[in-house]
Amino acid sequence: MIHLKNVEKVYRTSSIETLALSNINLHIQKKEFVSIMGPSGCGKSTLLNIMGLLDAPSQGTMELDGNPVNNFQDKALARLRNEKLGFIFQSFHLINDLSVLDNVEIPLLYRRSSARERRLLAQQALEKVGLSNRMSHFPRQLSGGQKQRVAIARAIVGRPEIILADEPTGNLDSAMGNEILSILQQLNSEGATIVMVTHDEAMAKRTHRLVRLFDGSQVL
């Protein structure tokens, strides 16, 4: 499903060059639930960003469903992100000026779906994460756990095949963290491929496979 070959990522400024990822080779199978672990600054989020087409590798290739995407233009990448990928961020990244329902609808805005269809799908996604009673609330009126559930609803509303979660439980207490992980496991059991960056060993153990990174390299 996702195939990284000899991926390297270098951040350059006028005076400094930082190697964030080096020689990453990773193959994520369909319906897998993979966690990525490692100390802060080891390149976990960079790796997830490359897998999510949010950033491009400096070297190496990234394939999605067997197609190399390195040379895709903005429009084609946007379409792939919209149709195949869903993101969950540690700090939720909800738009405070929009209601819960409007936030969840965002991925559908960039498809040819009617307002009615968008509303229906967003409602279904919110029901799935147990927030059907908070649709007209605004993010500021929600707790951290509720915000993350809205973020999950937004990630799954377009029914993407892959969900990329960057420390989804990082800002939550352990009970809420467990609840979020349970939702992710449920989504995985329904067929979604999930890649999750985490610091939490216990959480990582509940996934199918663990990838460890250290100083930008895979630890075998």
Binding site: A78, N82, G86, I106, Y110
Partner: peptide, 16 residues
């Protein structure tokens, strides 16, 4: 900026 990032992450092309 964060909103722009979110919209792009969920499939908004720069043109849109």
């Amino acid at each position: 900026a964060s909103e722009i990032g979110v919209r792009k992450a969920f499939g908004a092309p720069s043109q849109t």
